[in-house]
Design a binder for these strands. Structure first.
Lengths: 353, 353
DNA sequence: CTTCATTAGTTAATCGATTACCTAAGCACT
DNA sequence: AGTGCTTAGGTAATCGATTAACTAATGAAG
């Protein structure tokens, strides 16, 4: 190749530039180069520092995080396992966490466990094998490795769905029990007593807690669990579970006035059947959901929902992680303040403490 | 510690088990252990193989992918950069890609660029620094590093939104131009001529192509661009852009019969304003969108949309990657077959080729 | 003049896994 | 006996970055 074609040797960086190359170009050792790049200035002269920085610039050097991770046995990566990315609530939470993590110089690696224990375990292993700084699980499922992981030194943080076996785990998210209580309260305040519940699997702590709060408060008001019809079918896809379960209520002689769905996705499914049956989801009944999906105000304003704004999750998650890493970890769960989003048909009452 | 507490030394694996430990326990060299673990059997006796496998089992050894990656200069990780995880269409695509990748033994690392060039560049760098096997971009934005990346040896694949500068990039997704043409066709077949367009930034190739296809076909039918009113405001959030843009049409003396939104999210925004204005999104007008958001049949059945089922993306993406890696890469874009989802008010006509 | 401290570096080990190259033993063939 | 081939492994370099431990030079203090 004629020299005229070699250009300034600058942007011919098609193969990776290593620290060794930088050191060689700057005529220093890799140790010196490494220190300067990491901001340790007390081991080099002003001149050398400048020299190295110039070389880094010229060669377009970026440290290979993999090398650093191997040596330091710790990376800047945080693994986030979401139970279902097809659920907009979880995606929105993940998105918020991503913002907050990046703000602190961390990199998010997001995975989709599809609510399956085996896949969750696979990713847990992979995260460990990639030396993730922490693993954040949005919607954990019970799995073999989850228990093992507790004893390891990797930080494990549960979002919105507490650890399946509860004990000494870190949690950030909605207080599911209290949210259930609050929904019951609001309904009682409006004199709504004919209430039906649509739920999917109750094996997940979040759903079970929501239902418990709801029924506890209703019981206090004299409405006992037997008075509260439940609709449920087996399945993992909440949209379909909601759709099919709703049939139970449509078939009833005396249909509930209020349909409380233990997740917004269940409500979406129930809504579809309601529409197909020619009923009005606002005038003919009242729908309540949990999670407050960010799309609700845009295209599902028939739904009343209770949840935490997605953008609160990121900062809270990062704060919790930093807490765990620094001083003694907070064994108390971090409850984010949930809010109602009510449709205009529903009186907007202040939420009693 | 009394020996009675030491148990079987089995599940006390709280600190990572390394290959060296396995080798030591099995009384072989790391070379032999490594070979056996990787299935290279012609360098060890039956006995040794069994011995090593037993030790792996006992110690619960999992290779640290980071070590392998460093040595082989290549990992099993594929980086996926999504422009906005808050957009359910993109999340659903990501989810599908995750399935397909895992099926082939790859690990997805998903990131959210929030439609920002700077963040996209940051992640591109990080992916390179993590030695990602490939980078898949769902909704690329024009950015400095994107061009540089082309010359590097990392595979770059664009999903649904072609590379900003078009030339020799790999693409999998909808044929945006043809989709525009097809929507125009369908409208013409139904005699709909009074059409309005809501769009966000036209700097993105996807939106620009959709619009071009639409207008080209309409022009052929004698409806020229000047006859097609456009509504648009600045902004990145399609929900808000749609909401505010819709005002333009509501204010018009002769409102378009058909509102074509260049993305479903725009349509969701327009829908909200339509509802607030007390209009019926089916009877008073016809909404068309692009992408066919998976939630549409459940909670947005007023919307007609054109798109590709999300679950087609995964297999197609993986197939494209494998193609690129194996023989000479396919320079032709891979177009997935798009389909209409029409609401019941809209006649279901066969889609003319 | 000797001793000690400081500055400005370098050398080499290390993280975990892979693999080119070497070795030693066993067997067959001439 | 010598040569060649196969089998069953071991040795050590390597990927990229970090860092403990060392060195050489200079200056200051006694």
């Amino acid at each position: 190749m004629p020299p005229s074609q070699r250009r300034k040797q600058k942007h011919t960086t098609n193969s990776r530039v290593s620290l060794a190359m930088v050191a060689a170009h700057a005529k220093v050792s890799t140790a010196t180069a490494s220190r300067i790049i990491n901001g340790i200035t007390n081991k080099a002269s002003e001149q050398t520092i400048l020299q190295v920085k110039k070389t880094v610039e010229e060669l377009g050097y970026r440290p290979a995080s993999i090398g650093r991770a191997l040596r330091c046995q710790e990376s800047r990566m945080v693994g986030v396992l979401a139970a279902s990315l097809a659920n907009p609530t979880m995606s929105a939470i993940a998105s918020s966490i991503e913002w907050a993590l990046r703000d602190e110089g961390y990199i998010m690696s997001l995975c989709d466990t599809h609510e399956e224990a085996k896949i969750q375990d696979e990713y847990l292993r992979e995260m460990q094998s990639q030396l993730a700084r922490a693993v954040v699980i949005i919607g954990a499922v019970q799995s073999e490795l989850l228990t093992d992981y507790r004893n390891s030194d990797t930080t494990l943080l549960f979002i919105n769905r507490p650890a399946p076996d509860q004990e000494n785990s870190y949690y950030v998210g909605i207080n599911n029990y209290q949210a259930g209580v609050d929904v019951a309260n609001l309904l009682l305040q409006h004199g709504k007593k004919n209430i039906g519940i649509i739920h999917a699997s109750l094996n997940f702590t979040a759903a079970a807690e929501r239902r418990r709060g709801l029924l506890d408060r209703l019981s206090e008001a004299g409405i006992y669990p037997d008075d509260v019809p439940h609709a449920h079918i087996e399945g993992l896809n909440h949209l379909e579970v909601g759709y099919k379960s709703m049939q139970t209520f449509l078939d009833m002689l005396k249909r509930p006035d209020v349909i409380v769905c233990l997740s917004d996705m269940l409500a979406y499914g129930a809504y579809r059947l309601t529409q197909e049956a020619g009923l009005d989801p606002i005038k003919d009944m009242t729908f309540f959901g949990f999670d407050d999906n960010p799309l609700n105000p845009w295209i599902a304003n028939w739904l009343n929902s209770i949840g935490v704004p997605a953008n609160l999750y990121g900062p809270a998650t990062v704060a919790a992680l930093k807490n765990i890493w620094s001083h003694s970890p907070p064994t108390e769960p971090v409850y984010l303040p949930h809010q109602f989003r009510l449709n205009k048909e529903f009186f907007l009452l202040p939420l009693k403490k």
